[in-house]
Design a protein around this nucleic acid. Structure first.
Lengths: 196, 196
DNA sequence: CATAGATCGAACCGATCGGTACGAACCTGA
DNA sequence: TCAGGTTCGTACCGATCGGTTCGATCTATG
């Protein structure tokens, strides 16, 4: 067995641990707000270890954004699925799940979009675009489930509500942002359903 | 006359010129994406001049964000006012004005929110919050003009659509983002008006 | 023409940046 | 016990960072 699983020295485990801790720290401080030296100290790894696993600081950033995008999108999709078959209930569940994220004290907006807003590296911007794709797919699916005339159009409107709620929660007032967006989303859903 | 107006050497004019050029460059490259030395070269001013007018790089950043927030918000308010007395027309004009911004090749999202997303300085975050306040005030005013039951509630929903449209235009697909958001906004407006 | 202020260009500062190198300590599988 | 890989801690590298200083140059005013 080339890779000792569960042992003290396990590259995969080390990599995952770095990724997890770096996710917190980079989100809290901003991608350019902390240097590699301090980052290593906070993560509990040496520079050599970090650079062997991720190559460059950008490599670490991209790896953590990819993993985070997947986790966040999956959590949202699961919340929708757990709400049952009614599209209105699914939509409400999505915005309630979002509000739970807004309520976390460390919430500072979407990590992927924050990164794309500052980091002009193409790979980072692609991760953010892909992240919005995942959201759009989920919301368009709910629109289709509701049987509206133009599911992609409603999905895109709902995507804007999701992103707008996140922006407002991050930079203006987080209290009730999810509820406000949820009401708007349900209004758009019933208006689209009424036109069939 | 202590200040030579219109002359070659005019501190106020120098300051304004630095601010205008720095606005472009900092938006294009990102606040941390360019150093003061290169920034001065692009701006066409010496370091000493820049530091005398703005004290620090952060000082320059804050000054240009304040000025830009005011200009953008005023442009939007003027677009709404020029659309006449009908709240629906005003709302449509707002989103059409937004789409015009999205169509600019250099468009990269809201400068104030981008700055707040990366720069953890409290002053920058305050400028972004104030910027959202201006938007909210405009949109709540339109909602009140429409005579809906709860103008602040509708205003907040519309604010989310504005911000969501900007995010989607910047990071996903700018074509038609304004139109999509405009349709959603008009739907929310008529739904709120119908409940009176 | 002389003075005062504005600007320039370049040198310079200490600090920090991302990234590399290396010896020592440490597992783990053979 | 030995060999190979992983990790650590630290020293180190050149480059760049934000910011300061200073002499030279220019302009407007008196």
């Amino acid at each position: 067995m080339p890779v000792p699983k569960g042992s003290t020295i396990d590259p995969e485990r080390t990599r995952a641990a770095i990724l997890e801790k770096a996710t917190e720290v980079l989100y809290e401080r901003g991608l350019d707000g902390i240097g590699v030296a301090e980052l290593c100290a906070r993560v509990g790894a040496s520079k050599e270890t970090l650079y062997r696993h991720f190559g460059t600081k950008d490599g670490l950033v991209e790896a953590m954004l990819r993993e985070r995008s997947e986790r966040v999108a999956n959590r949202l999709a699961e919340a929708a699925a757990a709400a049952g078959d009614d599209p209105g209930d699914q939509l409400a569940a999505v915005f309630d799940a979002l509000q739970r994220r807004y309520d976390e004290p460390a919430f500072r907006g979407c990590p992927m979009l924050n990164a794309a807003a500052q980091h002009h590296v193409e790979a980072v911007r692609a991760i953010a675009a892909r992240h919005l794709d995942r959201y759009l797919e989920l919301l368009t699916g709910i629109a289709a489930l509701a049987g509206v005339a133009d599911p992609p159009a409603l999905g895109r409107q709902l995507l804007m509500l999701v992103q707008g709620a996140t922006v407002v929660a991050a930079h203006h007032d987080r209290a009730g942002a999810g509820a406000t967006a949820r009401e708007a989303a349900l209004t758009l859903l019933s208006a689209a359903a009424r036109q069939d």
